[in-house]
């Protein structure tokens, strides 16, 4: 469904990704793990079109995606749950969800999608009129996911969803993402919480200083391998 081929990208003179190749098949959940500064966020930015790759190509559903701007990437069916959630804090929960369905195609099915999101996250229906900025961290994360779902995506990118959440909330969050998977969405998730994320996904990549170091099925890769590689460097 999504394929990156030898993608190199960076900012100015700094190169954050070196010839990264990666695939996500339809219906799959794939994780990219790695320490801080490995280039995980840059990878997602390249996919969502915020930065263009210097060399290499991207394709989504067998059509090129290289260098397309963010609004077009969303229109093609890739939603992004950004790092730090990036809600519109002064807008209400309902308005945030409405913004998620900004594109014409999503607007047409707004009522139906909203019902599904409310079924998935009942708390968002209860807090409809509340300002997004006044929600708890966990609720904000749900709203960020709900907003992404409102665009009716085929593929959802998660950027460090567990960051800044209490440990108990992290477990609940991963349960939610599992539920979203079961709804049939394809998922690409970038995480530092290796232990939890490996229980969730089918396959995983280890990204380290801008290069893919390891890849494989999640159940074959032991957590130790990843943790050793990722954090100790052995």
């Amino acid at each position: 469904m999504l394929a990156l081929h030898e993608v190199t990208a960076g900012y100015g003179h700094f190169t954050a990704l070196w010839a990264v190749s990666l695939r996500v098949e339809r219906g799959e959940a794939v994780a990219v793990v790695g320490p801080n500064g490995a280039g995980k966020t840059t990878l997602l930015r390249v996919i969502s079109g915020v930065i263009a790759p210097r060399t290499g190509t991207l394709a989504f559903e067998s059509t090129p995606l290289t260098g397309r701007p963010p609004h077009e990437v969303v229109a093609r069916g890739i939603a992004h749950v950004p790092e730090g959630r990036r809600l519109f804090p002064a807008l209400t929960v309902a308005e945030n969800l409405r913004m998620g369905a900004f594109l014409p195609a999503a607007r047409r099915t707004f009522a139906e999608t909203l019902e599904r999101v409310h079924a998935l996250f009942p708390v968002l229906a209860e807090r409809r009129q509340q300002r997004a900025g006044s929600l708890s961290g966990g609720e904000q994360q749900m709203l960020a996911i709900g907003r992404a779902l409102m665009s009716r995506p085929k593929l959802i990118l998660f950027d460090e969803p567990s960051m800044g959440l209490a440990p108990v909330m992290v477990l609940r969050l991963f349960d939610l993402i599992r539920k979203i998977r079961e709804e049939g969405y394809t998922i690409l998730i970038v995480e530092q919480n290796v232990r939890q994320v490996l229980k969730l996904v089918d396959r995983a990549y280890l990204l380290e200083v801008g290069r893919i170091r390891m890849e494989g099925r999640a159940d074959e890769l032991s957590e130790q391998d990843f943790v050793r590689k990722a954090y100790v460097g052995l």
Binding site: S48, V50, V74, P82, F88, L91, M99, F102, M150
Partner: peptide, 24 residues
């Protein structure tokens, strides 16, 4: 208009606005 909600979103956070598909 939709331009109003788009502009409000952009005024709050341009990155977030782009991430929901708004052509900033």
């Amino acid at each position: 208009s939709m331009a109003r909600s788009a502009m409000e979103a952009i005024g709050e956070d341009e990155t977030a606005a782009a991430s929901v598909g708004i052509h900033v």
